[in-house]
Design a protein around this nucleic acid. Structure first.
Lengths: 237, 237
DNA sequence: GGGCAAAATTGATCTGGGTCAACTGGCTTT
DNA sequence: AAAGCCAGTTGACCCAGATCAATTTTGCCC
């Protein structure tokens, strides 16, 4: 799928009132730095299903998610897919050592990112250790999440995987749209399956099972947590 | 298991001719900095099976592995274990945001580490962005490995998991003891199983299967790759 | 070097989740 | 409003890998 790559405008005029100002990589910058930083990034919009970058592509840019949800995934040569994470507003994408992206990233629904050309961004970091520290923090946080996910993939049952996913996804949305028992699921069942190391049928069956037990209600575009405690019990071990 | 915690001596006198000088976190330091750095760390030895730190322990130190192999793992409340990685000389352990370790670390065989108290180490980093950059590189490398491992855990068969593990482990040893078709496996079958999200029986059977096919030979304390191409074919997908 | 305990292998059987296939219900298109 | 099309659900069956249960092998300590 070809990217539309519609540059709305240089993010320059909007950094200070940017939606992710407080949580993203730029949280570490003061007002003066922010003004300089503004010239580096530009807002780019991607439509639903578009690929922002692909695994093995040479890294030319970094991305700060401003709006929407992305799936981050790796493919095996025979087509099997593992989703390694979902990116939300505030997430920073594109860091790597090899000079190539080590996963692919698609927009799920419409997505707006703040795109930075790699070279000037790296130059900007150069003498701003607090920005580097912020990026390092984000990497360490992701590493911790990645390890949690390894436990889920390697050692948990289908029921536990699904229950853990629902709770974890709800938790991630708290800072974006507040705490709620109504959990929107913008990704498809196939995406959930590929994230949890299951098949689409097993995910669907597990949702139905949770609903029949009165733990959740399957609603259009998501689920409603009817009995969070029951779901937590399923997720626990 | 209680740690012996035998401090051999301040690593001070040995940094410049340290085995991991070139590959570890300290690779980023120049000779003058190294002299100052020496006072921060001390060599500590752990016997086989000893726990260096546990998940949820408050982080008081960082560790630079100098010698030996460690298993890094997370436990579920019911005892299921997922090994999230093996640490080798040059690996840097202990970074986290929460102030607590997010996995446990045991010595497999004897292990020597260079231990740094958290506070002075953080102070040392403070005005040395190149050291911070080095730590960030290590974190990014680990993150990439973690994502690869998610694919393995979520989407690969037992045969593929074992074959991929043998090749990956051999590859990691190259920089430490040179390329060889003889691959030492200091960890137990149970460790391998918990790393690959399998049972010990499946690991054992898969080893035997590979041996019967003439791909490997099971030798004391490891395996010998008789037919690396055959193993690669099994690992590919 | 004999006696044990732990680690590893092997065999027999079972089952959670995969596979294959049919069906249902929204949306879009005309 | 009929036709077509995905995404999702459900059912029937199967199999890779788990579980349970013996051995066998290895290492270790008197």
């Amino acid at each position: 799928m070809k990217p539309s790559m519609v540059t709305i405008e240089p993010s320059g005029h909007f950094c200070s009132d940017c939606a992710v100002r407080g949580s993203a990589v730029c949280a570490s910058l003061d007002a003066a730095e922010l003004r300089e930083f503004e010239h580096l990034g530009r807002r780019v919009h991607f439509d639903a299903g578009e690929t922002v970058f692909s695994e093995e592509d040479i890294t030319t840019s970094f991305y700060n998610v401003l709006e929407g949800v992305m799936r981050l995934y790796k493919l095996l040569p025979d087509g099997r897919r593992q989703i390694v994470g979902f990116a939300l507003p505030g997430d920073f994408l594109g860091m790597n050592l090899s000079g190539r992206h080590n996963f692919s990233a698609d927009a799920i629904g419409g997505v707006t990112v703040c795109q930075f050309a790699k070279v000037p961004f790296n130059r900007f970091i150069e003498d701003r250790p607090h920005l580097l520290r912020r990026i390092n923090e984000l990497a360490i946080r992701e590493l911790s999440q990645a390890r949690d996910h390894m436990v889920l993939l390697g050692r948990r049952s289908a029921d536990e995987k699904v229950a853990t996913f629902l709770l974890g996804w709800r938790e991630r949305l708290v800072s974006l749209e507040g705490a709620s028992n109504t959990v929107p699921l913008p990704m498809s069942r196939q995406d959930i399956a590929d994230y949890l190391g299951l098949t689409i049928e097993t995910v669907s069956r597990t949702f139905t099972k949770l609903e029949r037990r009165g733990a959740i209600e399957i609603i259009h575009g998501g689920i409603s947590l009817l009995d969070p405690v029951k779901v937590e019990t399923l997720a626990a071990p």
